[in-house]
Design a protein around this nucleic acid. Structure first.
Lengths: 193, 193
DNA sequence: TTAAGCATGTGATATTTGTCACAATAATTT
DNA sequence: AAATTATTGTGACAAATATCACATGCTTAA
């Protein structure tokens, strides 16, 4: 059951078959059509989500009505609004499916109950969060570099996802306009002799 | 012993006096003069640090030799290079004291040993990381806003630290030049009519 | 207290990126 | 397949921010 997730867990910790089953029993599988929402702004985010198929984007709509993509989530990624999850305050983000998507979701309270009985489960979530944190730490500095460098960094890290994403989404993730990304791509493609 | 840290822990979890003592026994207190380094680039970061007095900055030196501040660390903050800590690869960051500073440091391996015997300690570090993560999540979007908005956001969050930081450091943290910050401050100070 | 070294302010100008408008192309729905 | 809708490309121009140069002022240490 849920081999993608069992493997992900096994990568970091050892959990007994029984404990794994009680964790799996607490998960709920959710199917999303393209453009459907996993989280909408104004809602409190009470779940963490593990993508087993497809992909989602997490974005904010700013005061000028423009969408700013904070993050993507594809297979093997946990995704949630950590701030809303932690504080119980309404989320300012939307999490929306980019393609037909399947996720496993776990409720915060349920998960924290499980942490008491299964310390290794907390170890797993802690390690996953450390990885995510290390990644965000890098993203901060990338966002301070030029548009060209940001795009290069993106391709380096997420090149394999490039054909599953639209350019406007990539641009938004990079914090530039779609027009700028378009120009940048064309320049890169035609290196002047 | 270390009341600042005990209080910080008590804010999130309950740990027996005995467990607290074995944790404290694993800590090493480090004193830094102004400009001294807690971590230098090229070194593997094997410690997490809790600032009990003073302040530090974590920065990268980019290819053009410019310093980019990722983060500050003042009283009550844990600070480390999470990427180097996690992967064991040499750090690209420097962590340097901005003023005379005292930190408590814990070694990664030691800490992970303690997690086995004191699950609540892992709970504590996990919660602290969640808070830090939620904060970084927000920082990503702030960095995509205008210089004026970034500065306003900074003052909102860290206004109380403003007089302990130089403007070039604030500018670097905001991802703008010191000249731009200077202009921005003067505009804000003299609202036309 | 004086010199040396940092830190900040400010003008002139360059660069980068955004904005707006519209055309062209691709994808989706009926 | 036609019609509709979404996505991408491109030009002209605007805005934001960086760069460079130098002046001013503040700190610190002999």
């Amino acid at each position: 059951m849920y081999p993608l997730l069992s493997n992900h867990i096994a990568r970091y910790v050892t959990v007994s078959e029984q404990d794994l089953q009680s964790f799996f029993a607490a998960l709920k599988k959710v199917n999303l059509r393209r453009n459907q929402y996993l989280l909408q702004e104004g809602t409190v985010c009470r779940h963490d989500h593990f993508v087993i198929k497809g992909g989602v984007r997490q974005y904010e709509v700013d005061d000028k009505g423009r969408e700013k993509i904070l993050h993507f989530g594809f297979e093997d990624w946990w995704i949630t609004d950590r701030y809303s999850w932690l504080t119980g305050s309404p989320s300012i983000y939307n999490i929306q499916a980019l393609e037909p998507t399947e996720v496993l979701q776990i409720e915060k309270d349920t998960l924290e109950q499980l942490f008491f009985s299964i310390p290794h489960l907390e170890r797993y979530f802690h390690i996953v969060l450390q990885h995510a944190f290390a990644y965000w730490q890098g993203r901060i500095l990338v966002l301070q570099k030029s548009a060209t460098e940001r795009y290069a960094h993106f391709r380096n890290l997420y090149g394999h996802l490039e054909n599953r994403l639209s350019q406007q989404h990539i641009a938004s993730y990079l914090g530039i306009t779609r027009e700028s990304l378009s120009r940048l791509r064309n320049q890169a493609a035609q290196p002047g002799s």
